[in-house]
């Protein structure tokens, strides 16, 4: 069970308070109509899914209801950092 720091509540809280929301930093294309089907399909369906360092979004669903980012190792489940929406991760290198 993960123990997650909500950067808005500024507290460690139980995983059960949060809901997972998939890979982070996937920007919606500004002009979808100009994309090829493949580009659009990539945006909608394709994810990096790494074994190791992963930037992902969580929602503090039964807390402040804010979305935020987590840098987590998908193999060891270690959480390196959590950061607010709009911020960039500081942990980006290395693999499990």
């Amino acid at each position: 069970m993960l123990h997650i720091y909500c950067p808005y509540c500024e507290e460690m809280r139980e995983e059960e308070e949060f809901s997972y929301s998939g890979e982070a930093h996937i920007a919606r294309p500004l002009d979808p109509e100009s994309l090829t089907d493949a580009e659009w399909g990539d945006y909608v369906f394709f994810r990096t899914n790494p074994r190791g360092l992963h930037h992902e979004m969580w929602n503090h669903a039964v807390g402040c209801r804010r979305y935020f980012n987590v840098t987590r190792n998908t193999h060891t489940y270690e959480i390196y950092e959590t950061y607010k929406m709009g911020e960039q991760p500081t942990v980006t290198g290395g693999k499990s």
């Binding site: 809901s19 920007a27 919606r28 979004m57 929602n59 209801r65 804010r66 979305y67 929406m85 709009g86």
Partner: peptide, 13 residues
């Protein structure tokens, strides 16, 4: 509700 919040908070702040 979650869907709308997600767009607001993550894509269109």
């Amino acid at each position: 509700m979650s869907w709308l919040e997600m767009w607001l908070q993550t894509e269109w702040p």
